[in-house]
Every structure is written in structure tokens, then in C-alpha cells.
Amino acid sequence: MFRAILIDKDDSGYRASVQTLDEARLPEGDVQVRVSHSTLNYKDALAITGKSPVVRQFPMVPGIDLAGIVEHSGHPDYRPGDAVLLNGWGVGESHWGGLAQKARLNGDWLIPLQRGFSAAEAMAVGTAGYTAMLSVLALERNGVTPAHGEVLVTGANGGVGSFAIALLARLGYRVVASTGRPEEADYLKSLGAAGIIERASLSEPGRPLARERWAGAIDSVGSHTLANVCAATRYGGTVAACGLAQGMDFPATVAPFILRGVTLVGIDSVMRPRADRLQAWQRLARDLDKGLLASMTRVIGLAEAIPSAEALLAGQVRGRVVVDVNR
């Protein structure tokens, strides 16, 4: 038996609750993991609250991230006792996820826990930090270096934004953070932000082209914000788009791309190939100042994840929420 958050939907409505389940109910998979920690991401909050159709089948255990120890394995790469982690691959949406004490998974979705990370630290990083690292790698591949000028990070108080600031600053970039919560300026500066701008300056409809400012940008907001970021990106700059907190629309023109040679790179973290995942986590182990994790992270128990989902969607959560599934 194990404890899990279970989401169900029937004639009685949509509901999420902590339940004790029989191991026999776990879905098919060739590796069974004893989960130590998971996380509460924006997508998890949508799944728990039902405010967006994230869950594709019911009942469902949410949780797009997990870290733990292999209990049983029919996969050639893993043996009992191995420390592993998982990000994405549709878990928590179409396959039972990490907000549970046990998970049965496709071994191809797992990667080894990187040396230097505990399970709790890996989940403090989670999909947010992994996505931020994928975005940083995209800027690097397109030739954006610290010498080229300022790099903008939007949605700065969120998980992806917080990690993007910390990583870029550690790598020597001058980072400007965009936030709708100016009272969090000291926190953002502690992560490495050299400047702060108000979210409102980017979130309203703007001009097709604005004054060139950003050598690069990491955007987790989308909509008008992404359009305005592209419009103010310098010649040959790169924008990594990895989120849609403001919206899925992109009300822009082609002007930045054909007049300034701006590159817009889409960042998918869910179905990313194994090689990209390993590269991102290896770079996180090398480049992330793990001393910052405490200030970026709050640890909660499994049952606390349900009420915390509402707070996350309301924009009341700073940084990362790690879920100790055994607490």
C-alpha cells in the first residue's frame, strides 16, 4: 500500500484527494520507483484544481517530476537501489506521476540522479530548473555571450525565472528581471539580477519594433510580453520561449525576425530526448549554485500540495515548492 494524490472525475464532479492505494493499481511500466520527493509545478496545480484540461484520463496521480530509488526493474539500464529522476514525458497527465510514494514507469523516461544532487535538491530544481537550463543552452548555441549585452528574464519570480536568473548570473551575464511583484526585488537581486523592470512595461500591446536592448531573453510568459521582448531584442539576438503564463497567443509581426535577424527558439521540456536531458542536468550540476536552493524553495507534505495548488495559480508562490511525499 502507498499514499498518493488521486484525481478523479465522474458524475459527482472533479476532485483531488490523498488516498491510500494498493500497489496493484499502479500502471504498466518496466521500472518501479520508491519516490522520495516530487514537486508542485504550474501544470500540477492546473491538474489538481481542474482549471485546465491537463489530465487526459482518470483516475490520475499528478506530478510531472519525481526522484527516488528503483525498487524493481526490467530495464537494462537500471537495477534496484539506483537513484533516478524523471521530468515530463506525460506523467501526471496520461500516466500516473510523482505525487505519490510509489511510481511504475517506462525506464526510458528516467535518467540517473546526477552526482552532487540529493533527491530533495534535484526536485528543488525539477522541471523548472531543467527548463531554465535548456533555455540557457539555446542562447549559448545561438552565440549569445555575456559580452553581447543584457539578457532579460520574464516571469522572474516563478520557478523557471528564478533558475534562469541564477544560472545566467553565475555564467557572467548581466540579467534584467521582469516581475509584477516589485516587493520581491531584493529576492531577485539575491539570485543575481542586476536590474528590475515592471511587468506592465511589457504586458500591453506594443510596437512592431522597439529600441534595441536585449542581447537575449528567456520568456515564460508568452502573449504580448513575448511579442514586446522580440521587438526590443538586438540585432542577431535570441529569445527562448518556454512558457505561457500570460497566454498562448503571440500578437507580433515578423519585423524583428526579418529586419534584425532575431531568433525565436521554442523550448520543450516534456518530450526532450535523453541526450538533451543528460546535458542539461550535467550543466546544472556544474553551473548552479546549490547554496541558493534554500532561498528558492519551500518543502511541504503530500496533503499540503492540494491547497498549495490554488496559491500557485494565484501567483502567490515564490520560486519552487518541493513535496516530500513521505511527510
Rank of each mutant, 00 (worst) to 15 (best):
A67D: 05
G68R: 04
I69N: 05
V70R: 08
V70T: 02
H72N: 04
H72Q: 12
S73Q: 05
G74K: 10
P76R: 13
Y78N: 05
Y78C: 02
Y78R: 12
R79I: 01
R79P: 00
R79K: 10
R79G: 01
P80T: 06
D82S: 09
V84S: 09
L85M: 15
L86H: 07
L86M: 14
L86G: 05
N87K: 00
G88D: 08
W89H: 15
G90H: 11
G90F: 07
V91M: 04
V91N: 07
E93Y: 05
W96C: 06
G97C: 12
G98T: 10
L99S: 04
L99R: 06
L99V: 02
Q101H: 15
A103T: 07
R104A: 09
R104T: 10
L105A: 04
N106L: 02
N106Y: 02
D108T: 05
W109E: 11
W109F: 15
W109Y: 15
L110N: 02
L110V: 12
I111W: 03
P112R: 11
L113R: 12
Q114E: 12
R115G: 06
R115L: 08
F117E: 08
S118Q: 12
S118N: 13
A119L: 06
A122I: 09
M123R: 05
M123N: 07
A124C: 11
A124D: 14
V125C: 13
V125D: 11
G126E: 10
T127H: 04
A128K: 06
G129Q: 12
G129N: 14
Y130Q: 04
Y130F: 15
T131Y: 06
T131M: 08
S135M: 04
S135N: 08
V136L: 04
L137E: 10
L137C: 00
L139G: 00
L139K: 03
E140F: 01
E140R: 11
R141T: 07
N142C: 03
G143D: 00
G143F: 09
V144G: 01
T145Q: 10
P146W: 02
A147E: 15
H148P: 00
V151D: 01
V151M: 02
L152K: 01
L152R: 02
G155F: 00
G155S: 00
A156E: 00
G158T: 00
G158K: 01
G159R: 02
V160S: 07
S162D: 03
S162A: 12
A164Y: 01
I165E: 12
I165G: 06
L167K: 03
L168S: 02
A169G: 14
A169V: 07
R170K: 13
L171M: 15
L171V: 09
L171F: 05
Y173K: 01
R174V: 14
R174S: 13
V176I: 10
A177Y: 05
A177G: 05
A177F: 07
S178P: 06
G180R: 11
G180E: 08
R181A: 13
R181I: 04
E183K: 08
E183N: 07
E184N: 14
E184L: 14
D186E: 13
D186W: 02
D186I: 10
K189M: 15
S190G: 14
S190M: 13
S190P: 10
S190N: 15
L191T: 11
G192D: 08
A193Q: 06
A194V: 10
A194T: 13
G195T: 08
I197F: 04
E198S: 15
A200H: 13
L202T: 14
S203G: 15
E204R: 14
P205Q: 03
P205M: 10
